Computed example of a mutant assay.
Amino acid sequence: MTVSIVIADDQELVRSGFAMILDSQPDFTVVAEASDGAEAVAAVTEYAPDVVLLDIRMPRMDGIEAARRICAGSSSRVLMLTTFDQDDYVYDALYAGASGFLLKDVRRDDLVHAVRVVAVGESLLAPTVTRRLISDLVARRPRSDVSPATGLDALTSREKETLVLLGRGLSNSEIATAMVVSEHTVKTHVSNVLAKLGLRDRVQAVIAAYESGLIVAGSS
Rank of each mutant, 00 (worst) to 15 (best):
K104Q: 04
A66R: 03
L53I: 00
A66K: 01
G167Q: 11
H184D: 12
A205M: 08
R68D: 03
C71N: 15
V117F: 07
A40T: 05
G121K: 10
E65D: 07
R168T: 07
V203C: 14
L53F: 06
R168Q: 15
A178R: 12
D145A: 13
D62E: 02
V203N: 12
A93H: 09
R141D: 10
M58P: 06
S135Q: 15
I175Q: 07
A119N: 03
A195N: 10
G218Q: 07
R200N: 10
Y95C: 04
G63Q: 00
N192I: 08
D145I: 09
R168E: 14
S212W: 14
V164L: 15
R140E: 15
S220C: 04
H189C: 04
V44Y: 01
G17R: 07
D50S: 02
I207G: 03
D110M: 08
S135W: 12
R108F: 10
T83N: 08
D10S: 00
T188Q: 12
V14P: 02
S35Y: 02
D105M: 02
R15Q: 01
C71H: 10
T188I: 06
D136S: 11
E39C: 06
V118E: 01
D153H: 12
G121C: 04
G151T: 09
R202Q: 10
F84R: 14
A209N: 01
S74Y: 04
D87E: 15
S171R: 01
D62G: 00
E65R: 00
G167C: 08
S135H: 13
P148H: 05
L165M: 10
E46L: 05
A48W: 05
R131M: 13
S220I: 06
T128S: 13
G97E: 02
V112S: 05
V129N: 08
T156N: 04
E159C: 06
I56P: 01
I56T: 02
V106Y: 01
A67Q: 01
R132L: 09
N172Y: 05
Y89T: 00
F101A: 09
V129T: 14
I64F: 00
V193K: 06
R108Q: 09
D27Q: 13
I70Q: 06
P59R: 03
I5V: 08
N192A: 15
A119Y: 09
T29F: 05
D105S: 05
D36C: 04
A139G: 01
E46T: 05
E161N: 13
S220M: 09
A195G: 09
D110N: 08
I64Q: 00
D109K: 06
R132F: 10
V3I: 14
V206L: 03
Q11P: 02
D153M: 05
R116A: 09
I70M: 11
A176I: 03
P26M: 15
L214K: 07
K187A: 03
D105W: 00
L137F: 14
V52C: 12
A72K: 11
Y47I: 03
R158F: 09
L194N: 10
V138K: 02
S157L: 12
R141A: 09
V90C: 03
A119W: 10
R116F: 07
E12A: 14
V129G: 04
T150W: 10
L197A: 10
V31S: 06
A114Y: 07
S75E: 14
R143L: 14
D92Q: 15
E39L: 00
M61Y: 07
Y91L: 05
R140C: 12
Q25P: 10
A126P: 11
I5G: 08
F18A: 11
G169P: 06
S144M: 08
L124Y: 11
S191I: 03
V164R: 15
